[in-house]
Design a protein around this nucleic acid. Structure first.
Lengths: 216, 216
DNA sequence: TGAATTTTAAAATAAGCGTTTGAAAAAGTC
DNA sequence: GACTTTTTCAAACGCTTATTTTAAAATTCA
């Protein structure tokens, strides 16, 4: 048996890909080793041979799915660090929306399942992978709000933006018919979120400015 | 056996309350009739006697939980229809945030589970109960955007606002330690969402106005 | 008291899963 | 081409868990 990371064999890779699909569709508990092996055209014992057990396969499957989705959609959408913060925010919002609305990407579905039916198995690895993305967006928002903004204001604005990106995609993923009509056009919705959020940030900034003046 | 609606007996009510708790915590599939009966201090056969089967109990449990949560948090938060649209929007946002952040209310948790692991059993009843709330918010947004706004702009703004309300509560519900720090103060976050969103709406409105001028 | 309702324990019924095993096949090595 | 290692395979193991039904007992109510 090999450790999962050095998974170079064909069967091993098939298992990983099949596991991603099945875990994304059913969640950890409702996914069965048998179904994963069947989809991978492998023997029922293959999971235990290549990954030791179902739990390890689950962790490796998410790691794999996340890496793939980031590879397809770089988090800055090609907007360089030298660009003004407005443009960088646009890049991050667009990249995030496209990444999680891309049906090829299954890591988002697994995260959703993990949110509502936690197994706890992905807690550490998710923290490790997602925190940097969050920090990057917070830094951009802080630039836009200016030095007088409080941590709470940065937090709130970040929550507002992330929510606008994540939440509609939950509905869209589940069923395109039930998704809000316009969300089918991700680019148009991304433009809306950027416009809406930049205005929101400026409103929060204005309030901070007023406070500052009252105090001074 | 009685039909579930005329559930007046003590055992029947206990079952309903217990079912809400267990379904909210585990979802339909992972919840067991045995656990529900145990929590209700009823015999294992009680569900089948009073509700015919698990599916019917599930539907009735959600209906009950939703009715309770709406009773505790009226959707307009006491802001009358005569108030200006800004205030009505504030009322709706505040009411929604307080309703779904109230840990007593389990219907939200069941909806979340249904989103990510659909059984399909609640589809119609959820449509029936939630659509009016959605329509009401859309109407308010349309007032704020003015008569020149497109349906898509109304939709997008509604999605932006609903997302800001729903999404953070998913995290807060799961675990207060993992929730964004400020979200623990729901009232402060509600104020932020109102400010952020009114600015966002006005930005969308300005864009509509410009378009109008170009065309005219 | 007698009839209807409700509760109960036990059983019926049914299904399913992750994992192990030991032999067979394939791949790799000298 | 014999020998070793790695990989595949079918079968079965062991253990678990669930919903629903049944028929008798208890209770309620007239």
């Amino acid at each position: 048996m090999k450790t999962p990371r050095e998974c170079s064999k064909k069967t091993c890779k098939s298992l990983l890909a099949a596991a991603v699909d099945v875990f994304a569709e059913k969640g950890y508990r409702d996914a069965t080793v048998a179904e994963i092996c069947e989809l991978a055209r492998a023997n029922i014992a293959a999971v235990n041979y290549h990954f030791r057990d179902k739990e390890t396969l689950y962790r490796e499957a998410w790691r794999y799915a996340f890496a793939e989705s980031i590879k397809d959609h770089p988090p800055d959408a090609g907007v360089g660090a030298a660009s003004p913060p407005e443009e960088r925010l646009r890049g991050q919002i667009t990249a995030l929306l496209q990444r999680i609305s891309d049906r090829k990407n299954k890591d988002f579905l697994i995260v959703l399942k993990e949110m509502t039916n936690p197994t706890g198995l992905l807690h550490e690895i998710m923290q490790e992978m997602l925190l940097p993305l969050q920090k990057r967006m917070q830094a951009t928002i802080r630039e836009l709000l200016g030095p007088d903004a409080s941590d709470m204001q940065v937090q709130f604005c970040e929550v507002s933006i992330m929510s606008q990106c994540v939440n509609p995609m939950v509905l869209k993923r589940k069923d395109d018919r039930n998704a809000p009509p316009g969300i089918k056009n991700v680019k148009a919705y991304a433009d809306h979120v950027v416009r809406f959020s930049l205005a929101g940030i400026h409103a929060v900034q204005d309030k901070a400015g007023k406070k500052q003046m009252k105090q001074g």
